Deep mutational scan, measured.
Amino acid sequence: MATGGRRGAAAAPLLVAVAALLLGAAGHLYPGEVCPGMDIRNNLTRLHELENCSVIEGHLQILLMFKTRPEDFRDLSFPKLIMITDYLLLFRVYGLESLKDLFPNLTVIRGSRLFFNYALVIFEMVHLKELGLYNLMNITRGSVRIEKNNELCYLATIDWSRILDSVEDNYIVLNKDDNEECGDICPGTAKGKTNCPATVINGQFVERCWTHSHCQKVCPTICKSHGCTAEGLCCHSECLGNCSQPDDPTKCVACRNFYLDGRCVETCPPPYYHFQDWRCVNFSFCQDLHHKCKNSRRQGCHQYVIHNNKCIPECPSGYTMNSSNLLCTPCLGPCPKVCHLLEGEKTIDSVTSAQELRGCTVINGSLIINIRGGNNLAAELEANLGLIEEISGYLKIRRSYALVSLSFFRKLRLIRGETLEIGNYSFYALDNQNLRQLWDWSKHNLTITQGKLFFHYNPKLCLSEIHKMEEVSGTKGRQERNDIALKTNGDQASCENELLKFSYIRTSFDKI
């Protein structure tokens, strides 16, 4: 039985969820670079991206490699990797027998973001014989899940209580170790020597080791999670996991709180800001991140802002960003909400898709409305799209047979046209069989910064309504002859009103 693990408890099935942008060198404390989270699957090609990484700022997932063999891993080693800020997950990587050479110096898994409450997941690794993470000293947050690894031993010899604050939620089941077939031998045991430290858990006094050649490092209890030197002297209180010299914040392997210019500090002093819960960055760093993602459509890219001495992905609820200094300031009234469309555009074809934009005031991208039916549609669209004030790209209304009016965009005031449909149009209306009105132009103002209007096959939309939009939106004169079809717009509506004058002759039985 794995020490510190839980057996036999019912657990939810383990679901495996399925960018080499360097964020800056980590400095003297770390020998390499800070790398983003990685999802490495199918083959070993991307694994080489770990070569210079000291910190993975995010998670590391290595999974679904069915053609790899043990010899493929023999020359692979990433000794610079010290810390993973989120979680480490391995799933069905064939041929991998140990992690001792792959990650010989991995010391800390912070667990800032977890995989279903777990910071370390080893699942269905069919050839893994031992973990071998002999320098792993601290899992700051989260638990361990090690399950269905039929060859995995050296679990009962690990004292997880020396690595985690609590072992109650560890789930370590259905491994070879369960069948008591392992016969784990710690260093020196074969020669009758006791080389590794022994600890007591559940009444068992057991030597602690990761492999037959690597003991588990056990520091004096007084050192807590700070770690200790090879001689057993406690590291500085700002260290986490390990250090090369005692009581020196510049000799830590990793930091308990924050890293700044080669030393570990309790908090980031001005003019620095907390970033990702582990390091200090200056304003320029946060500003660069903001600008890199301002026009990016890459998933996970955030326009970072500053709030409460932190550089964070977005302002919290009730705050909006001051564009001059990136500071989050309290909103006066309802907060603006910028919604970034991942692929640059979004099609609204149902109430469900409209709900995804609920509360958005600025759309960074283009909207395509293609709704053919739905219950209580006008009210639903207004509830979900009615706060949109600005669209950076274009607005396209296409084959939306259920629409009679666009009044559900009740606050839309600006279409920038930074991206144009077919390279020309910022407003595009095609084949809307029941569209009769755009907006009530006596109450609604709309500016279209650039781009043209396109109207074709809107049989109940009168040309007068379209011409009014040209005047109000500032697009009059931009359109070419064929942009607004004269014969297919309003051709099934009563669009022309003329005053009919009647004269009559009164007659009676005795007068003409």
Rank of each mutant, 00 (worst) to 15 (best):
Leu102His: 01
Cys243Asp: 01
Asn175Ile: 12
Arg263Asn: 05
Gly333Lys: 09
Pro336Leu: 10
Gly32Lys: 04
Phe115His: 00
Glu147Val: 12
Asp72Trp: 15
Leu128Lys: 00
Gly58Met: 00
His291Glu: 15
Leu326Trp: 02
Arg110Glu: 14
Thr329Tyr: 13
Pro31Val: 09
Glu231Phe: 15
Cys252Lys: 01
Cys239Leu: 00
Met65Gly: 05
Asn42Ser: 11
Arg41Phe: 14
Leu114Gln: 14
Thr68His: 12
Cys235Tyr: 01
Gln61Leu: 04
Tyr273Ser: 07
Cys234Trp: 00
Tyr154Thr: 05
Met65Val: 05
Glu238Phe: 09
Thr329Gln: 15
Asn202Ala: 10
Leu88His: 00
Pro313Leu: 15
Arg298Pro: 06
Pro197Lys: 08
Cys264Ser: 01
Asp277Val: 06
Ser143Trp: 13
Leu96Ile: 09
Asn195Ser: 07
Thr45Val: 05
His302Asp: 12
Ile62Ser: 00
Glu238His: 14
Thr140Arg: 07
Cys228Met: 02
Asn170Asp: 09
Asp248Ala: 08
Glu97Leu: 06
Ser244Tyr: 11
Cys264Phe: 01
Arg298Glu: 08
Tyr304Asn: 01
Leu174Trp: 04
Gln245Thr: 04
Val253Ala: 14
Leu63Gly: 08
Met321Arg: 06
Gly262Ile: 08
Asn322Trp: 10
Gln216Phe: 05
Leu63Glu: 02
Cys301Asp: 05
Asn117Asp: 09
Glu181His: 15
Asn150Asp: 04
Met65His: 13
Lys80Pro: 01
Asn325Ser: 03
Arg298Ser: 11
Gln299Asp: 07
Lys176Tyr: 03
Phe285Ile: 04
His59Asn: 06
Pro316Ser: 02
Gly188Arg: 06
Glu168Val: 15
His226Phe: 15
Thr157Glu: 09
Leu29Phe: 03
Ser143Pro: 12
Glu151Ala: 09
Arg298Met: 07
Ile146Ser: 02
Leu81Thr: 12
Cys196Met: 09
Tyr259Ala: 03
Tyr134Leu: 09
Thr107Ile: 15
Tyr259Ser: 05
Lys176Asp: 03
Arg297Trp: 06
Asn195Ile: 13
Leu327Trp: 11
Gln61Ala: 00
Tyr273Gly: 04
Asn242Ile: 06
His28Glu: 07
Asp39Leu: 05
Ile201Gln: 09
Asp165Glu: 15
Pro70His: 06
Cys252Ala: 00
Asn202Ile: 02
Cys234Pro: 03
Pro36Leu: 08
His214Trp: 11
Leu128Arg: 00
His291Tyr: 14
Cys243His: 00
Tyr272Arg: 01
Gly58Ala: 01
Leu99Cys: 04
Asn170Met: 08
Leu89Lys: 01
Pro334Phe: 04
Arg145His: 08
Thr157Lys: 08
Cys328Ala: 02
Cys209Glu: 02
Phe285Gly: 03
Ser77Arg: 12
Asn170Arg: 09
Cys280Met: 00
Arg41Ile: 15
Lys80Val: 04
Gly32Val: 09
Tyr30Lys: 06
Cys196Asn: 04
Met83Leu: 10
Cys234Met: 03
Met137Phe: 12
Lys191His: 03
Ile201Met: 06
Asn170Trp: 04
Asn175Thr: 09
Lys100Phe: 09
Arg298Leu: 13
Ile158Asn: 04
Gly111Cys: 02
Ile185Arg: 03
Cys301Leu: 05
Asn138Ser: 12
Ser161Ala: 02
Gln216Ile: 02
Glu33His: 11
Cys235Val: 00
Thr68Leu: 10
Val206Ile: 03
Cys219His: 04
Asp277Ser: 10
Pro79Cys: 03
Arg297Glu: 13
Ser323Asp: 12
His127Phe: 08
Glu151Thr: 01
Ile201Ser: 15
Tyr272Trp: 05
His48Cys: 05
Asn175Asp: 06
Val173Glu: 11
Leu327Val: 03
Asn149Thr: 03
Ile62Phe: 12
Lys80Cys: 10
Glu238Asn: 15
Val34Asn: 07
Ile40Arg: 00
His48Leu: 11
Asn308Met: 04
Arg113Ser: 00
Lys129Asp: 04
Asp178Thr: 06
Gly300Asn: 07
Asn308Ser: 09
Tyr94Leu: 15
Cys209Ala: 01
Leu64Gln: 02
Cys264Tyr: 01
Asn308Pro: 02
Leu90Ile: 06
Gln216Thr: 04
Leu47Pro: 02
His59Ala: 08
Pro36Glu: 04
Cys196Val: 12
Gln287Ser: 10
Glu124Trp: 03
Phe78Met: 09
Asn150Ile: 13
Gln216Asn: 10
Asn105Lys: 08
Asn149Tyr: 00
Thr320Trp: 08
Gly300Arg: 12
Phe78Cys: 01
Gly192Ser: 14
Leu114Gly: 01
Asn309Cys: 03
Cys228Gln: 02
Phe66Arg: 00
Ser98Gly: 03
Gly203Tyr: 09
Ser317Arg: 00
Pro36Cys: 06
Gln276Ser: 11
Arg256Leu: 08
Arg145Ala: 08
Pro31Ala: 04
Ala230Thr: 11
Tyr272Leu: 10
Thr85Ser: 09
Cys301Gln: 04
Thr329Glu: 02
Cys234Ile: 02
Phe103Asp: 00
Ile122Ala: 07
Val93Pro: 00
Cys315Arg: 07
Phe205Met: 06
Leu174Lys: 06
Asp277Tyr: 08
Arg141Thr: 02
His28Cys: 15
Leu120Ile: 15
Gln303Arg: 09
Val200Phe: 14
Lys193Ala: 03
Cys311Ser: 02
Cys182Gln: 04
Leu128Asn: 01
